[in-house]
């Protein structure tokens, strides 16, 4: 950042930037001033302030509370869609799950985690695919866990209700008619799919121990991009601990473990890129 740009930044920007960096690991550089203005102003208005600056000077010395939380929520980017990028779901269906099903035949248990699940489409896509393509799993214990920093997103995901523009994106029409019920302008996912899933609030940069049990598949997509290299490393180090030795992880299209954590190796799988622990049995 040049000195001129730094000088031009309002004082509240620095407060907001530190707040989201410390609490949620999200990095905001000077080019994100417009984002802060657009998303934090409604928080200020809701709490009766007429500017972000006024709100920040009021809460600056207060302990962390509701307003701080709402600022962070407002600055998370929640974009997602059903079967986003398609290929990871193809890899899961064609290769990863058939292999895992063979290996877990004795325990008959599988655990899949959508970390940073936003409004839930990623995990429900997996649930729909399991129901459609793996009827054998009907008699298994299948744990599908979705977690996110945002309480609001977790509530939305758990409600399993989507609007038209959300069901328009990425969801095969055959699944829409089979598994969703239209209610006015909304579409509600059937209980038979919804009840396959569990939703919890989880901040990825805090310890996960109590929330996340050992996992066979981890979807950690489109969230590391918001973090600093150090925080990316911390998160990947925790994945290492919960991922089973023969499990696998998917990252977003713009993300990688390279130069961050060399205990993972990447391998191409049905058009997707998958990460496994080195030395893990495959």
């Amino acid at each position: 950042m040049t000195a001129a740009v730094a000088e031009a930044l309002p004082a509240y920007f620095d407060f907001v930037r530190r707040l989201v960096a410390e609490r949620a690991a999200i990095v905001l550089d000077a080019t994100k001033l417009y984002l802060v203005d657009a998303r934090v102003m409604p928080v200020a208005a809701r709490h009766g302030f007429d500017s972000i600056a006024a709100m920040v000077s009021a809460i600056r010395s207060r302990p962390f509370g509701l307003i701080h939380e709402e600022i962070i929520e407002a600055l998370t980017t929640n974009e997602t869609s059903f079967f986003r990028d398609v290929t990871p779901f193809e890899a899961l269906k064609k290769t990863i799950l058939p292999e895992l099903i063979q290996k877990r035949g004795a325990q008959r248990e599988l655990s899949i985690w959508s970390a940073a699940c936003s409004s839930g489409q990623e995990l429900y896509s997996i649930a729909l695919m399991l129901r459609e393509s793996f009827p054998t799993l009907g008699s298994w214990k299948v744990n599908l866990l979705g977690t996110d920093y945002s309480t609001q997103m977790i509530e939305r995901a758990a409600s399993a209700v989507y609007n038209q523009s959300e069901v328009n994106r990425g969801l095969p029409a055959s699944y829409l008619v089979k598994y969703f019920q239209r209610q006015g302008l909304q579409w509600r996912l059937s209980d038979s799919i919804r009840t396959m899933t569990t939703w919890r609030r989880l901040n990825l940069i805090e310890p996960w121990s109590s929330v996340v049990a050992p996992m066979d598949v981890v979807f950690l997509r489109n969230v590391l991009i918001y973090f600093s290299p150090d925080d990316k490393k911390k998160v990947l180090a925790q994945v290492r601990k919960v991922l089973r030795p023969d499990g696998c992880m998917f990252l977003g299209g713009a993300e990688t473990t390279m130069k961050l954590d060399d205990s993972f190796e990447r391998f191409p799988c049905d058009g997707a890129v998958c990460y496994r622990l080195k030395g893990g049995c495959t």
Binding site: S81, F83, Q164, S165, V167, N168, R169, G170, P172, A173, S174, L176, V177, F180, Q181, R182
Partner: peptide, 28 residues
């Protein structure tokens, strides 16, 4: 309506998108 989507699929449509939709929905 769900019944209309079903009807289009059984007539031979492979996919269905509801108006209005953005380019990303069509691309998906």
């Amino acid at each position: 309506e769900t019944s209309q989507i079903e009807c289009a699929l059984s007539a031979g449509a492979d996919e269905y998108v509801m108006k209005p939709y953005p380019k990303d929905a069509l691309r998906d």
